[in-house]
Write a protein that binds this DNA or RNA. Sequence first.
DNA 1: TCCTGTTTAGGTAGCG
DNA 2: CGCTACCTAAACAGGA
Length: 312
Amino acid sequence: MPRPGRNTYSDQKPPYSYISLTAMAIQSCPEKMLPLSEIYKFIMDRFPYYRENTQRWQNSLRHNLSFNDCFIKIPRRPDQPGKGSFWALHPNCGDMFENGSFLRRRKRFKVGSMQATDPLVPSKPQDATRAKLLLSALHAAAHLPQMPAGYNLTSVSQPSGFKHPFAIENIIAREYKMPGGLAAFSTTGYTLHNQLAPAWPHMYGSGMMDSAAPISMAASDYSAYGMPLKSICHGGQTLPAIPVPIKPTPASVPGLHGLPTHIPAFLANSPQSLSPTSPQTATGQSSPAAPGEALPSSASAALSCSQGHTEM
DNA sequence: TCCTGTTTAGGTAGCG
DNA sequence: CGCTACCTAAACAGGA
């Protein structure tokens, strides 16, 4: 079990919304998807505050999962015993906290806000249903959750040290870098899409996006990741297990345009810089919730499910 | 029975 | 001040 202490907030409420916390949990896992129970565990492990009143915040958290478009439910396959579905982040939700505040987003992430402009986006309920079927095919074809104990998409999920904007590393790093503003960061040539694709074979693969995220496939050089995703995705619509966008309408960003371009370059390039032992992580401003105390360190916080779900 | 997931509703607080 | 994001509570259904 991770011990509370330097790597966790004390008993005070962390300055993160439930959406942030959930996103952290999901992002901390190499597979970028976690069952509800693992999300609970992640939060409780790292934020002692949430070890109390569990009924209250867990209810809120479930509400958030269902209510917010930025979370995607990925049903277990029939051969995957266990309770509940897996939860993942919508690939396009990365810029929700662009304003740097993890308590309050500038704007709620909502899928479907760009339907009018993107032909890939289903605009009718039946399209959404069809998209679900496609998701189903993708999910099954990609053999997504080979979970639960040893989620094993690891090999393809984190190429080149990429960290999703919601990765706890990034969230924390941002806090350190704030309040200077994210504008200082530029990641020219860096595309979230390319980084996420391997972690989202089922999402980036193809047609599924016509439901969950109209990520452009234009730059789809999947082979770069050894994942012939396109072939995977053109599977039939008859397979089981549907990665289901809660609101099966696509996100607002066609192609890469809306994807975050403000991801700090050092996040993409130098994971070590986020190490708890790295000077960089210790030089920034303290967390608003725990001044002077080290935030849940990137590395330890990102202990990820591989550690988190094996203990207890 | 408990857990999970969905939905509704009321209240609080930040932002423009 | 209005809008909106967020928090909390609660009811309910379905599944393990």
